[in-house]
Each structure stands twice: as C-alpha cells, then as structure tokens.
Nucleic acid binder design. Structure first.
Lengths: 200, 200
DNA sequence: GTCTATACTAAGATAGAC
DNA sequence: GTCTATCTTAGTATAGAC
C-alpha cells in the first residue's frame, strides 16, 4: 500500500541503489578518460555533482568503490555473454563466445585492468564479486570442453593465448584489429591440436 | 698520467657512474619488494643511505630514473640472450631463445611491468633506451623468420601467445611452471602451422 | 545525505647552506 | 654532492553542522 512505512522504505532503498549505480557508471566513465589509476574520489564526486566526502555515504572506502565497479563490470559482461544465441556446433559456439568476450573488452577497454589484471595495489574483490568472475570463467571452460579442449593444460594455454592477443591489441592498437582478427583461426588451431592429441 | 686533470675527471666520472648503477640496482630491488608503483624517491634514498633530494644529483626527475631502469633492464636481458649458444637448427634456436627470454622474466618479475607493459602513467622511454628494446624484438623476429614463421600476422600471434603465457604465469603462479611448461610445445604448434600454411 | 572544514599521509620537486 | 628545510600538490578519510 502506498504510504505505508514498508513502501516508503522500499522507495528510499530503490533511490539509493539507483544513485549508487549512477556513481559506479560515472566511475567507469572516469576510468575510461583518465585510466583506472586516475579515478580519484574528488574527480568522481565532481563528475556526479557532489563533494568528495559525500561519496562515503555510498561506499565505505575506495576499495569498496573498486569492488562495486568490479562486480558491475562482470555483471555487464555476463549479461552480454548470456544474451548470445550460441550455434549448435560446439566449435562455432566457442568462437562466438570468445569473440563476444573479446569484443566486450574492446568496447570497454577501461574494464580490463580492474577485471582481468592485478594492477591496483592491495585490491582484492570480495567473495560475492569474485563469484561473478568465476562464473564467467566456468562458462568459457565448459565451452572449451565441449569443443574438444579437455586437457587442463590445453585450457590454460587457450585462455592465456586469448588474453595475450587481447592485451597486445589493447596496448598497441586500441580500436584496430591487428591481433584480434586472428582469433577464429587460433581457436581452430587449438581445437584441432587438442583433438589430434586426444585421438593419438 | 696520474694526477692530471684528465685522469682525475675520468675517475670522478667513473665513480659517479658506479654510484648511479648502484642506485638503479637498489631501485630494482625496491621494485621487487614493493612493486614498481611502490618505488618512491624517499624509499629509494633510504635504501642507498641518502636523503631523498640527493637523488636529484643523479636523476633529473622520477621519469629519468624510470628511463635508467628501463635501459638497464633491457641491457641485462640482451646480455643474457647474446650469451646464448644457439643450436644450428632454427626451430631449436627459436625455442632456446624464447625459453631464455621467458626465464629472464621469471627470474626478474619486477622488470615486466616496466619493460613490457604500459603500467606507469606518463612514462615513455627515451629514444636511446627504446632502441635497446627494439633490438631485442628484432632478434626474436629474425629467429622466428628462420624457423619458418614469416607471415607478419603469425609473428604477431606468436609474440602475443608467449606474452600471454608469461603474464598468466607471473600473475597466477609466480615461481611455478603451470603455463610456461607448454612453451616448447606451443612453439612447435605455431611453427608447424606456419610451415603448413606456407606450402599450401 | 550532503555539506564545510580539516586531519593525515605521502609523493615529487626546489632553495640554499655546507 | 649532500644535507636540512620547505614548497606544492594530491590523495583518502573523518568530525560535526545542517
């Protein structure tokens, strides 16, 4: 019922969550402009029209902000991957999934240092946020398995190879495709090699 | 002749260069302990028994220190690679060279962010220092060519793959070999693929 | 929840005596 | 070349009024 304490409470909470989301989005925008290390609470507050101490109403510390960004980035990545309509052929499914993962990272290069590297001194994601990252990884590994990459060492190599291509692309040719254009071919190469090794 | 102005000048310069080398070595030691971002002029001065402003007698700025470290790291890497006695077989030569490069990075993990990533905001190596890095890369590319990896795209992929393995190793299992143990096999995979593609 | 004011810490860099 | 002293800037975080 409108006007009851419960409804009011809910509305306040909702508004607060919206505001928190706005702040996290602004933090990502700032990270894109200045790099993840350039995200300061002063700059972030300016961006959302607040004073710096006011941010402490939403985040207990700078690391809590990082954690919220980490969770948010992983959630957005998972949403894109879940929205994929994967083909039946497992090899093609792996390619589509991998391409989408890489495309997300190219679309949002600012997420890379926080999500996939350990570039922020002292930051460790909370258990809940980390679980999101692990789910993403688990999906990738499952698709690799279904495509024939079953050996754990081969899985490690495949993931490292994809990460290597992506890192080279982002740091040397952001916006281009000099490295990532070889993705499909390399997935084929790794799948073929895994299949050849498993039937030997 | 001893005692002439020229000899004295030389001795002073030599002493100064030695002292500079000591400071750079201490900076690397500090980077190893605290990470490259943890290298502060205060901490470095403490380590070499000086006060922080005294370092400005040796380096005009923090970036000048980074540049000296960058040059020093590349010089040590080049020295190790040049000291290799490469086998005649080009494929084996590539493997030995690649292994040594990776081993250097594992032995000196603190060099990785400065030498091979762009992790320090605003730092660009000077032309002279950068030339050292390019020479290292040129040697690798030459060995790849001789082993049959001639297509520029294949060279890009090979380098990115090696960097990917190394990055995964350093950030997830430093001191272990979970990723780098697959190096030789992957070099073979890439060489075989390049050869198969070139004769097709 | 938001503000002003401020504490605290730490960094790079410069001035000037010795 | 090295020191003491200081400047300047910038960051996170807290106290307390409104």
């Amino acid at each position: 019922m409108i006007g009851t304490p419960e409804a009011a409470q809910t509305k306040v909470q909702q508004r607060r969550e919206e505001r928190t989301s706005e702040i996290v989005a602004a933090a990502w925008a700032l990270a894109r402009e200045e790099g993840i290390a350039g995200v300061s609470l002063h700059g972030l507050a300016r961006k959302v029209g607040m004073r710096q101490p006011s941010l402490y109403s939403y985040f207990d510390s700078k690391h809590a902000l990082y954690d919220a960004m980490f969770a948010d980035g992983n959630r957005r990545l998972l949403a894109r991957l879940d929205a994929l309509d994967l083909p039946d052929d497992p090899r093609e499914a792996l390619k589509v999934h991998t391409r989408e993962f890489v495309q997300f990272s190219l679309d949002h290069p600012e997420t890379n240092p926080l999500l996939f590297q350990r570039t922020i001194p002292g930051f460790e994601p909370s258990a809940g946020s980390y679980a999101l990252a692990q789910q993403m990884l688990a999906d990738s590994v499952r698709l690799m398995h279904e495509a024939g990459i079953t050996d754990p060492g081969d899985v490690d190599c495949s993931i490292a190879m994809i990460a290597g291509l992506l890192a080279a692309q982002l740091s040397n040719d952001p916006g281009g495709d000099r490295w990532v254009r070889h993705l499909d071919r390399l997935v084929d190469l790794f799948v073929d090699d895994a299949l050849a090794r498993s039937t030997r």
